[in-house]
C-alpha cells in the first residue's frame, strides 16, 4: 500500500524541480513550497540544497589540442568534399568525349546558359556581389583597426574574435595576429591570438608564425600552450625553436619537462 505522505512529498518535490528548471527561481519560492507542504519541508530543502551545491562543480578550460583536432578534422572533410566535387566534374568531362553526345550536351548547356544569363543580368546580382565584397572589406578593416588598437585590450580581443569569422586571411591580418602573439603585453590577448591562428593552420604563414613565436614567449602558460599546439600539428620543424627556448631562458621546471617531452614526441 502506498504511503500517502510519501506520495504527497514526491509530488511536492517534482513540482519544485519543475520550478527550479527556470533560471529565475529564487530561494523565497522554496519557502512558499515549504509552507504549502509543511510535512515535506525537510526533503524540499535537501533537494534544493543539493541542486544548489552542484553550482560548485567547476569545469576546466578545454585545451588548444581540442581546437587543433577539430580544425584538422574539418580540413580533412573539406578536402574530401573538394575531391568529390572534382570527380563529378571529371565525370561531366568524360561525357564530352563522345562526339554525338558532346554536341547535344553543348547545345543544351548553351540554351541553359542563355536562360540563366538573362535571369542573372536582369537582377541586381552584380550590385549584390559588390555590396558583399565591400562589407567583407569593411569587416577586415574594422578587425585590423581593433587588433592594432594600442589603448584597449577589449578592442584587441574583439578584433581577434572577428578574425575567426573570416574565411581567408590577408597578409595584414596575419601580421597583426603575429604581432599580438609576439608583443602584446596582455596574456589573454596572446592566448586568444593563438586560438584564432589555430583556425587557419592550413595557411603556411600562420603555421610558421606559431612555431617561430616559441622562443620569444616568457609566460609559462603560453609556452605550454604552444607546445600543445605543435604536438597537435605534428610540426617537427618546431624542434629547433623549442631547443632555442630551452637554451636561452630559465624555464620553470614543469615547462622545461613539457618542452623536452614535446621534442621526444615530435622526433
Amino acid at each position: 500500500m502506498k504511503d500517502p505522505k510519501r506520495e504527497n512529498c514526491q509530488n511536492a518535490i517534482e513540482a519544485l524541480l519543475g520550478q527550479m528548471e527556470n533560471e529565475s527561481f529564487q530561494e523565497q519560492e522554496l519557502e512558499i513550497f515549504c509552507q504549502q507542504y509543511p510535512d515535506c519541508s525537510e526533503s524540499l530543502r535537501a533537494t534544493y540544497a543539493t541542486w544548489q551545491s552542484l553550482e560548485e562543480l567547476e569545469v576546466p578550460k578545454s585545451s588548444p589540442v581540442m581546437d587543433a583536432g577539430f580544425y584538422k578534422m574539418l580540413n580533412e572533410f573539406q578536402t574530401e568534399q573538394n575531391k568529390r566535387n572534382q570527380s563529378i566534374f571529371g565525370f561531366i568531362s568524360k561525357i564530352f568525349e563522345g562526339p554525338g553526345l558532346k554536341w547535344a550536351v553543348l547545345a543544351g548547356m548553351f540554351l541553359l546558359g542563355m536562360v540563366s544569363g538573362s535571369i542573372f543580368w536582369s537582377g541586381q546580382s552584380g550590385e549584390t556581389m559588390a555590396v558583399v565584397e565591400e562589407e567583407s572589406l569593411n569587416k577586415v578593416n574594422l578587425s585590423y583597426a581593433k587588433l592594432t588598437s594600442t589603448e584597449s585590450v577589449t578592442d584587441r580581443l574583439q578584433g581577434i574574435q572577428m578574425v575567426k569569422e573570416m574565411v581567408e586571411l590577408d597578409n595584414r591580418i596575419i601580421e597583426a595576429l603575429n604581432r599580438a602573439l609576439l608583443n602584446d603585453e596582455n596574456e589573454n590577448v596572446r592566448l586568444s591570438a593563438i586560438e584564432t591562428m589555430l583556425h587557419f593552420t592550413d595557411n603556411p604563414k600562420v603555421r610558421e608564425n606559431l612555431i617561430r613565436a616559441i622562443p620569444y614567449q616568457d609566460s609559462p602558460l603560453i609556452q605550454m600552450t604552444l607546445a600543445e599546439v605543435v604536438i597537435a600539428l605534428e610540426e617537427k620543424s618546431a624542434i629547433v625553436e623549442i631547443r632555442e627556448l630551452l637554451e636561452n631562458q630559465a624555464l620553470e621546471l614543469e615547462v622545461k619537462m613539457k618542452m623536452e617531452e614535446t621534442i621526444e614526441l615530435l622526433l
Binding site: 562543480l57 569545469v59 578545454s62 585545451s63 583536432g69 577539430f70 580544425y71 574539418l74 575567426k164 583556425h199
Partner: peptide
Amino acid sequence: SKMSLLYERHKRDLFGYFYRLTNNASKSE
C-alpha cells in the same frame, strides 16, 4: 566552414557536459 562557427559557439558547453559526466578532461575533449 560554417561548422567552425557552430563549434566555437557550443564547444564549451559540450565539453562541460562530457566533463561533468566523466570527470576526465582529455576524454571529454
